[in-house]
Design a protein around this nucleic acid. Structure first.
Lengths: 342, 342
DNA sequence: ATTTTTATTGCAATCGTTTGCGTTGACGAT
DNA sequence: ATCGTCAACGCAAACGATTGCAATAAAAAT
């Protein structure tokens, strides 16, 4: 019982020609008679021949596979990006191999190692929360290894970054809250070491300043895990402890925002009448909760598309990495729903 | 500029030994002097040697890679399963290559083809909604190719299926609604050709029957896409058209259930006082919406773990496929929240 | 001193495909 | 009859690692 696929040799044997001839015939090389080509293709069809991609990879030192490294799969934004990645990759004939780090640096490094062993043609990376040192990426970049960073991007030489305009998104969200008459606005911030968190906080701060509202540091609280419970507790504490109650929340992410809404409700505050809330990422549930949650939509799918197109162009030498010096920034969109409109 | 990794030959050249010796030294074969082993390992370290997995795959006809085929990534349940898959695979030294079919049969078939070309060691499959003919899978199974089906499983010879107890989950959910005093319960059903849909509907029907409630076919509506909008419209229509208004909804999935809740609210019905609602899958948003949505939790992560363990055991011949004749059924859990308790 | 044993290592084939170069034979031209 | 030309195809190396089977040398046994 021959379980393996038919090879070029099988075709060659059947026709009493050499494997070179078969190889060339299959790819319509000149110098092979039409007669032979016909016969080869016929037998190939008959034997259900499929080229062995592994052998090809070995020969060409190219695997037509790209590696994707992300913190977690069970995440609306990231899974959306994956979807975009998969789209472009498969349409251009590449495979996608996936590894989630679960926010662990160790895991991140070992994933890279095994992917390198697998002769990955390039990487698409959004690094973990633990990653503060980028040595392991720089080394690859120095070797000319194709890498595109997305969303969570490093600030290192030669890195090509695709990101959303977190600053502008946060600025718009906060300005919107202000324009609706909220002015003691809490910011549930993200992990400090991620640039996206910093950018969002900066957008929040600038929006306040530009509208003449003083920045109160006690209203800015880091929400490191980004869970609903965390958002709930932090919000509850703030409302309990502060004499001057807040009247707005701009959260670094939707889940924390949802927690904040629940906290407000449990304390007897009405959202949006007493407290306005805006989240970030536009998870699916935003339009399903009560009140529906205003949020900054990140173009995850588009980001996946863009990052992958860049990577493949890089791999196929259609693009010179040195021509890209600025990050590619995708625009966000503020989706105004009920949670922030009085 | 040598961008490629160092190979065994590089080590061999550096030490003036043959590549065989290096290969053996690296794996601590007997018959290689300790002295040589030491030196080889030293140089390997120095050159930052990483074995070329592609070459190994070619030699062994094994790629240490498994292929995952799922309908979509941006889906709470499926992404959770992926997470479980990734967990086991990486801990046992396997790569995961991913392909989403977007519910298209054509895409499903072509994914299988390219994965076969890539000498995938085995498949983890949840097929598309379009798939009604399983020829393309049977052929592989007949060749002894390792495949595990999960969640959406076929009824074909020799297939190994991992599924959740959809019947019991639906039965429990419906029974729960009945015990809470609801008795004209709508069922928003799933796509007819998926066995999970049928099983859930069967659970719903049996629960009604066993509690002496007649089954009203007009209350069973297929919700093919499973979107919030679809759930909304179907529910709205039912309430508008029927003289005897329903007082409960058991939905095939949470998103449709969320749509149903919105519809009820918009029609002025109170959930849970007028209408009780239970969903399926326990998406994250269940505890964030108002009222919090009761749902049947599917053990997605566990399913990923189990399916992958089975597959790898199959691949590594630790498991004889013929010993598994019954599907592996994982238990669901009914999470009772506010949407179904008066 | 000769044979046998043992410890180390190398040769070469193999996995499936590609590809530079050489070979073969037919044919027309001289 | 000899040569050159050209179409059509085969040889063999290469990609990187593994492995059965020698081969070699030194050490042990006789």
């Amino acid at each position: 019982m021959k379980i393996g696929q038919a090879t070029i040799k099988d075709i060659a044997r059947e026709l009493n020609v050499s494997s070179s001839t078969v190889s060339r015939a299959l790819k319509d090389y000149p110098g092979i008679s039409d007669e032979t080509k016909r016969k080869v293709k016929e037998v190939a069809e008959k034997l259900n021949y499929r080229p062995n991609a592994i052998a090809l990879s070995l020969r060409k030192s190219r695997s037509f596979t790209i590696g994707v490294i992300i913190p977690e799969v069970v995440h609306f934004f990231f899974s959306t990006v994956i979807s975009g990645i998969e789209e472009v990759a498969s349409s251009r004939g590449y495979n996608v191999i996936l590894s989630q780090t679960n926010e662990s640096l160790t895991r991140e490094k070992s994933s890279i190692d095994t992917m390198l062993s697998n002769q990955i043609d390039g990487f698409l990376v959004s690094f973990s929360k633990e990653t503060t040192d980028f040595e392991h990426f720089s080394r690859l970049l120095d070797h000319g290894y194709p890498i595109i960073f997305f969303d969570r991007v490093p600030n290192i030489p030669h890195s090509i970054n695709v990101m959303v305009d977190d600053y502008q998104g946060a600025y718009n969200a906060t300005s919107h809250l202000i324009s609706q008459g909220y002015n003691r606005i809490v910011h549930l911030a993200g992990p400090k070491n991620l640039s996206i968190s910093k950018e969002r906080e900066r957008g929040y701060r600038d929006a306040l300043s530009n509208h003449g509202i003083p920045i109160d540091p006690t209203l800015i609280v880091e929400c490191a895990y980004g869970t609903s419970d965390e958002g709930f507790k932090i919000t509850e504490n703030l409302f309990k402890q502060l004499d001057k109650k807040p009247d707005g929340v701009f959260a670094n992410n939707d889940i924390a925002a949802a927690g904040a809404i629940l906290a407000c409700k449990s304390l007897g505050y009405s959202v949006p009448n007493d407290v306005g809330v805006v989240g970030f990422s536009n998870w699916q549930f935003c339009s399903m909760i009560e009140p529906t949650l205003s949020s900054v939509s990140q173009p995850g799918f588009k980001m996946g598309l863009k990052a992958t197109e860049l990577l493949l162009d890089l791999i196929e030498k259609k693009l010179d990495p040195d021509t890209i010096t600025e990050p590619i920034v995708l625009e966000t969109e503020l989706l105004i729903r009920n949670s922030s409109v009085k």
